[in-house]
Design a protein around this nucleic acid. Structure first.
Length: 496
RNA sequence: GCCCCCAUCGUCUAGGGGACUAGGACGUGGCCCUUUCAAGGCUAAAACCGGGGUUCGAAUCCCCGUGGGGGCACCA
């Protein structure tokens, strides 16, 4: 798609909890649209509900976005022409706009108490009616209402939604949607504490900040008609509306609940960006994965970098149906991106995971080891397990792991001794120098090379599964390898 | 209860009237490669929710069912 106009888009989360995959994808698509059109990606904090606001959540949000590589052009920490970017600091703007609507007959002061509203709602529910505002204050004379406000009576400002006819709104993915106006409630725009609600604050800010495309979650689709009415009440031109499908839990049965989110962590999976980072996933892998949940480029291309996505992303190729989260696919994409990384860059990212595992990994050695494990790990966190033996002074090997299959203990010991002798005689322990004589030794011993290598692998790495044996030996170093083989011989000797 | 959205292999999807014997990917099975484990290559099984239309022709358009999802707060 060719963008003739630079898009101004925003990601406007409410920092009430940890940043999850759904938010990540919404942020990503917004970012892509901005970058491919030479526009701006704006971050706005929707913190009008002080009861739910959470400072830790905001820190998690900014660090998650940055980890993903989705830096915003305007917003907290970076500023911009439309400051402040915190809705809690824009109260006066919302009040002014709400009052403007009241003056124009598009909104009204409402003095109903919480108790009244609760009672009405309860009655409606019992009567199997959809909950909606009773309309009690809707047609109060403006002068009278203003007087009560001036007298200090507690009040809110509600939108005066049209009651007749219908409205047709347009979503870029779903086309025209028509709803009857009477199904649209007189929603509160400004609370009695003076804070605006989403329906007012987001519309006002989107307009004031020059937002051209609103990409947001599908949960907003039911209130789109209300939002369009609000835009029209102000006489503002609408942005393009794009409602992204929701993510479903892996079973495909509904959204993830809070409890299920916790349970998921027990299985080593998480929908939170920060957790994924801690678990050793690459931002490249996560991005590629979520980009393809609800969007596709063609019928075969699946590997995308952020740069690729900026180039290829297209709203027209978004899919409106909900997508189930598939962590197997994340592993796949992460593996792809791990293998696509230059080895030295991968080594750099691996370092903290060795430290976390309590291993002092020498960066230079790690850089040489990395090519050996690059295609054997799916997350960064896999590396210490498969390559930890490089950084431990010695390895612990039980005797039975040193026994060659279908061979006696004495013969196994003889084989190990022979191998040790060969390596000791080698002027230099390199992979190329060691392999051929070892194969010859296996032949002479009358055992399969693979069987001998398994024994040596256990003795030198302490693992049954490891990177290629001789390359590993070379990197471990001659003296250490010889010491481990001698230790193995000792263990075997004690068997008799 | 009411409103809205969605509907292709188990999952993510391609497909927008004839190019469909429905393509790709993950996962799964098999084979190859191989010093283990991976990675890689090849390969197999696996889907158009149902019923009506429209049309010479429908996975593609329309309607009705059904199923799934979302929403109905002084939350976002």
């Amino acid at each position: 798609m060719t963008q003739t106009n630079a898009a101004r888009v925003r990601f406007a989360p409410s920092p009430t909890g940890l940043t999850h995959l759904g938010s990540g994808r919404t942020a990503l698509y917004n970012y892509l649209l901005a970058h491919q059109s030479g526009g701006k990606f704006i971050l706005r904090i929707e913190d009008t509900d002080q009861k739910r606001f959470n400072l830790d959540a905001e820190k998690d949000l900014t660090s998650s976005l940055r980890w993903l590589g989705l830096q915003w052009d305007e917003g907290p920490e970076v500023g911009g022409l439309h400051e402040p970017y915190y809705q809690s600091k824009r109260m006066a703007i919302y009040r002014q706009h709400a009052e403007q609507l009241v003056e124009n007959g598009k909104a009204f002061y409402c003095f109903c108490t919480q108790q009244e509203l609760d009672a009405v709602r309860k009655a409606q529910q019992e009567a199997k009616q959809p909950p909606h505002y009773s309309g009690k204050c809707r047609d109060l004379p403006l002068a009278e209402a203003k007087q009560r406000v001036a007298d200090g009576e507690t009040h809110v400002i509600r939108f005066k939604a049209p009651k007749d006819g219908s409205i047709t709104v347009h979503d870029e993915l779903r086309g025209d949607i028509t709803v009857q106006n009477h199904t649209i409630d007189d929603r509160v725009l400004l609370k009695s504490d003076g804070h605006a609600l989403y329906h007012l604050a987001a519309m006002v800010d989107d307009h004031l900040m020059g937002i051209t495309h609103v990409l947001r979650g599908e949960e907003w689709l039911p209130s789109l008609p209300l939002h369009v009415h609000i835009y029209e009440a102000f006489g503002w031109p609408q942005p393009k509306w794009v409602h992204l499908s929701v993510f479903l839990k892996p079973s495909g049965k509904g959204k993830m609940s809070k409890r299920e989110t916790e349970e998921m962590k027990l299985t080593g999976q998480s929908i939170f960006i920060q957790d994924l980072a801690d678990m050793g996933y690459l931002p490249e892998g996560v991005l590629n994965w979520i980009a393809l949940m609800g969007w596709s480029y063609d019928d075969k291309t699946e590997f995308f970098t952020l740069a690729d996505l900026i180039e290829k992303f297209d709203i027209a190729k978004l899919n409106p149906s909900p997508a189930a989260i598939d962590f197997k696919k994340l592993d796949h994409f992460n593996g792809l991106h791990i293998r696509a990384l230059p080895a030295d860059e991968l080594a750099r990212r691996l370092l903290p995971f060795f430290e976390k595992a309590g291993l002092q990994a020498d960066p230079a050695l790690l850089a040489r080891i990395t090519p050996l494990i690059q295609e054997r790990i799916t997350t960064l966190d896999d590396a210490p397990e498969i390559a930890g033996f490089f950084f431990r002074p010695s390895v612990e090997v039980p005797a039975d792991k040193l026994l060659i299959k279908d061979t006696s203990a004495a013969e196994s010991a003889a084989a190990l001794a022979k191998a040790l002798g060969i390596l000791e005689a080698l002027p230099e322990l390199t992979a190329t120098a060691a392999e051929a004589p070892m194969r010859a030794a296996a032949d002479e011993l009358g055992i399969k090379a693979g069987a001998l290598f398994t024994q040596l692998r256990n003795a030198t790495t302490g693992q049954e599964v490891s990177p290629p044996l001789f390359e590993s030996m070379e990197l471990i170093g001659r003296e250490t390898v010889l010491a481990r083989l001698r230790a193995g011989l000792d263990v075997l000797g004690k068997l008799n």
